[in-house]
Design a protein around this nucleic acid. Structure first.
Lengths: 198, 198
DNA sequence: GAATATTTGTATCGGTAGGTATGGAATTGT
DNA sequence: ACAATTCCATACCTACCGATACAAATATTC
């Protein structure tokens, strides 16, 4: 039985989620009120709760969606590059571009949404923190692999390199939120690459 | 006439402001509620309003105080170094240290307090954005002076260098908020210096 | 001591936050 | 047609937001 029984919902959950993502991206977790969200999603409050649970679950869904698109995807694309240097150069370039995508809010959701917050949202803050750490960890693992493969100098420190690159991308997010242009960020990416070993 | 008439206030405004700064630093502008603030400051609500105007003015006062201490001071100290390279190395090192000062909340107030926010706090967001830009501008001016003095290569781009350094410090703030240690950040600072020209 | 000025604590303001109860509307299976 | 099920819309809930009215308390000035 494919068709659900009962009255079918009149909105598309995925596109509503995209709208919610956009609001969270722009306003942050606490800064996005339910009124902001429902208005942007074109649905009313009970529909939101029926479809997504509550604000926190909605945000987590939006966060998952974010990871598959835009800046989130930038990392996975970059990890596929053949050499460590290419991985990092591609990552920095991708991030610079996606953080300044004119069709999205500036900056990175996982950096902007809840760097600080009220006590009630501490769980979200932790979640974002964890996701940033996971991204860094992925990069680190890739660099360690590069060392094993002889593609990156044997005495390079993968953890420190990953942290440095991660730091630059997070700084770029703050810059983007402050109005830095795409060119500005691409120059930052170039500059960061000059620190690359070898 | 030195002594005021009327009942004297029973708290020290400066130390109350320090407490408020601490709360804003930890929770951000919107995340810090009046209840959080008054409790930490040890005063009640009307006293706060009488002494500081309102939440926004209190925050601006706290921000001014922040600029004179801790991470804010890190920049001014660094600008006094004799060469461009020393300025930047000192800046990055100072920032790494002050962002991980165990007696303060992690990270930089001007980065954390309102990267995103509800519509009502847009003015604060802009203010913080402006202050970050001013800090970068100060560094840029210092680097331009270094070029004039022949201390920095003639074909170096002061604006891009300043933006890069600024980006790294802002990224370090995000890292600090995420729990990075002082050593971690010092290594990031070292790594960033490898991008330095010459 | 009386008048004046200011701070303090309590109690409250209107507004909005996130979250729901309820009842009618729309579709399913029988 | 009818019961069952699900969705939508209005209206509302409690809690808390930033901000104040008010009167008791404490100081100075006359």
């Amino acid at each position: 039985m494919q068709a659900h029984k009962g009255r079918p919902r009149e909105f598309d959950a995925d596109s509503a989620l995209d709208k919610a993502l956009h609001v969270f991206w722009q306003r942050g977790y606490e800064g996005a009120s339910l009124s902001d969200l429902t208005e942007a999603m074109g649905i009313n409050r009970p529909s939101l709760y029926a479809a997504f649970g509550n604000k926190e679950e909605l945000f987590r869904r939006a966060l998952d969606r974010y990871a598959e698109r835009g800046p989130g995807r930038a990392l996975n694309e970059a990890l596929a590059e053949p050499t460590a240097r290419d991985v990092v150069a591609r990552l920095l370039k991708n991030v610079a571009i996606s953080l300044t995508d004119p069709s999205n809010p500036r900056g990175c959701l996982s950096v902007q949404a809840a760097l600080t917050c009220g006590e009630a949202s501490d769980a979200i803050k932790q979640e974002l923190c964890k996701r940033r750490a996971e991204a860094e960890q992925k990069l680190r693992a890739r660099l360690e692999r590069a060392i094993d493969e002889g593609d990156l100098s044997f005495d390079a420190d993968a953890a420190r390199l990953a942290r440095f690159v991660s730091t630059v991308t997070q700084g770029m997010s703050v810059q983007a939120a402050g109005g830095a242009s795409r060119d500005d960020l691409l120059h930052v990416a170039d500059m960061a690459m000059r620190a690359w070993p070898g």
